[in-house]
């Protein structure tokens, strides 16, 4: 049975690669999207077999609920609001990785503390929480800017970069505490909270016109977050697919920057005095 699961994961990885390739070409793009949807379905089915359908009722409830919300929102959204919708969905993906990592951490720290946890696993959990958290609030901020709920202007305050640096150092400190003592739940929760704040702070100084590039970059981050959860759960399909999205997302971000005649660095340091209102 285990071999069948692994082979399905392999088929799914191949379909993802072919799907993304097809999405590069105008005529085949829609087919490419279908390919990758089938790949996703295969990966989900294989995983359901892996958990031996033990918790099927709970899983079904969550999938039906999430699926209904996803379908409803994607039908309702106006064509002009598509990028905002992508930003929200991407934020949820990041949040999902954050919760997956926290769930696994909770099992190790609180529910089964006698189980030994390797350093690779704990570092992967920390990275998932960090990247997932930044992706979540970063994407929601990007959504707010695009929809006009948050000012599209670059919002900057004095000492912003210094403040971000301090937050980053605090994250490293919390991470070190968790690495040294797996059971430090408080340090983990503080780290998650700081990651959420950091997500807002890195997007808020960037102007509204640059948001598509930011969403593309955050999309790459959510791929990386999925990839790190793969290391937490020792799951190859998560690593392959997460890495595919993480890497191709960076390239797409660069291409989009070029198309808008902007450099990635100037977008990211938007509030830093680089050309504003460019794109």
């Amino acid at each position: 049975m285990n071999i069948l699961i692994q082979l399905t994961y392999l088929a799914s990885a191949i379909l993802f690669i072919v799907g993304i390739k097809k999405l590069n070409r105008t005529q085949e793009a829609r087919q490419g999207n279908t390919f990758s949807a089938v790949a996703m379905l295969l990966a989900v089915l294989a995983t359901l077999v892996q958990v031996q359908l033990l918790t099927l009722p709970e899983i079904l409830i969550c999938v039906v609920l999430g699926g209904a919300i996803g379908i409803y929102w994607s039908r309702k959204v106006e064509m002009t609001q598509m990028p905002e919708m992508v930003a929200i969905f991407n934020g949820f993906g990041g949040a999902a990785s954050l919760f997956v990592a926290l769930s696994d951490y909770w099992t190790r720290a609180v529910e089964q503390p006698e189980q030994t946890t390797e350093i690779v696993t704990i570092v992967s959990i920390l990275l998932s929480v960090l990247i997932g958290g930044v992706t979540f609030t970063g994407s929601l901020t990007a959504y707010g800017k695009l929809s006009g709920k948050v000012s599209g202007q670059a919002i900057v305050f004095k000492g912003q970069h210094l403040f971000n640096l301090i937050l980053l150092l605090a994250i490293i400190a919390c991470g070190a505490v968790v690495v040294l003592e797996t059971g430090s739940v408080t340090a983990m929760l503080v780290l998650a909270a700081i990651a959420l704040v950091l997500g807002i702070l890195v997007v808020i100084p960037i102007g509204g016109a640059d948001m598509p590039v930011v969403i593309s970059l955050l999309n790459s981050y959510s791929g990386m977050a999925a990839c790190t959860t793969g290391f937490v759960l020792n799951n190859s399909v998560l690593i392959v697919t997460g890495a595919l999205v993480g890497a191709s997302g960076i390239i797409l971000t660069q291409i989009m920057c070029k198309a808008m005649n902007r450099s990635l660095v100037s977008v990211l340091l938007g509030g830093f005095g680089a050309t504003s209102g460019g794109g």
Partner: peptide, 21 residues
């Protein structure tokens, strides 16, 4: 550009596998 970004956003939802586990 936008459809590709949107598609790879859907693919990054692969974390659904982690969630099921």
């Amino acid at each position: 550009h936008t459809p590709l970004m949107s598609a790879s956003n859907a693919i990054s939802g692969i974390t659904i596998v982690g969630a099921i586990l």
